[in-house]
């Protein structure tokens, strides 16, 4: 196991008082697999992966990510933790508008201390693999949504992170582009020592998962292991 969350509780303070969003989540994402996190809007999916990513603090419980106890890290420790261990893919791609595709991909490497030429050439190699070799010099605005998301995949993977976190990576894409992005994700992201978590609403892409974790109202409802197309359903205890 590589990502193991136990009894994670998270509440947000709002004007109306404290709102409990995660109510004791037990969640895991093994290395070498693509785990999908699904569930109705507002059930807490983004909150959970933000906590695992160290983008959000203030939860109780335990969150082990490849041996790091994320819940006990200080804000300043979380920054290098993210840089070293996590690759992000966002619904809106979030590419830097002024940078070309290959420059965007190079950013995590440059931030990790590589010089630009090295980072750029590694970025280009990865873009080739994603079928974007001829687009490496283009700005995001010159690329289609699907192409931009592929650039984002390259940026998320270029520094070989242990954990890949994707929030609705296909939500902004049409069916075909979504399928293409997921195919590439499976091809490139799945590795022995890497866990991938994909939050999605999109049932058309469930088939790309090894495991599907269903969330409901701040709790894990059930976990499906998908092997050879036959779902093996384990219903999760929700007795808390």
């Amino acid at each position: 196991m590589s990502v193991i969350c136990k009894d994670v509780k998270m509440a947000f303070k709002t004007a109306a008082g404290s709102v409990s969003v995660l109510k004791g989540v037990d969640f895991s994402a093994p290395a070498g697999m693509l785990t999908m996190l699904v569930g109705p809007s507002g059930c807490g999916k983004t909150t959970l992966i933000s906590l695992i990513a160290g983008l959000l603090r203030g939860a109780t419980g335990s969150m082990q990510v490849f041996g790091h106890e994320v819940s006990s890290m200080s804000a300043s420790m979380l920054v290098p933790y993210r840089l070293k261990n996590i690759g992000f893919i966002f619904q809106q791609y979030n590419l830097l508008a002024g940078l070309t595709a290959s420059e965007n991909v190079a950013v995590p490497l440059v931030a990790s201390g590589f010089d630009w030429p090295t980072a750029l050439s590694q970025g280009k190699v990865l873009l080739e693999k994603l079928g974007l070799g001829t687009h490496a010099h283009k700005l995001p605005s010159q690329l289609s949504g699907g192409q931009q998301q592929r650039v984002a995949i390259a940026r998320a993977l270029v520094h070989s992170p242990k954990l890949l976190l994707c929030d609705e990576p296909t939500a902004a894409l049409d069916g075909q582009a979504g399928q293409a992005v997921m195919t590439l994700l499976r091809e490139l992201a799945i590795a022995e020592d890497r866990a991938a978590i994909v939050v999605t609403h999109d049932p058309r892409v469930y088939s790309f998962a090894d495991r599907v974790v269903h969330m409901e109202d701040g709790l894990i409802a059930k976990v499906e292991s998908i092997s050879l197309g036959k779902p093996d359903v384990t219903t999760h205890s929700t007795s808390r």
Partner: peptide, 8 residues
């Protein structure tokens, strides 16, 4: 985004 990626 840069901060999320891990730029301090």
């Amino acid at each position: 985004t840069l901060k999320a990626i891990g730029i301090n």
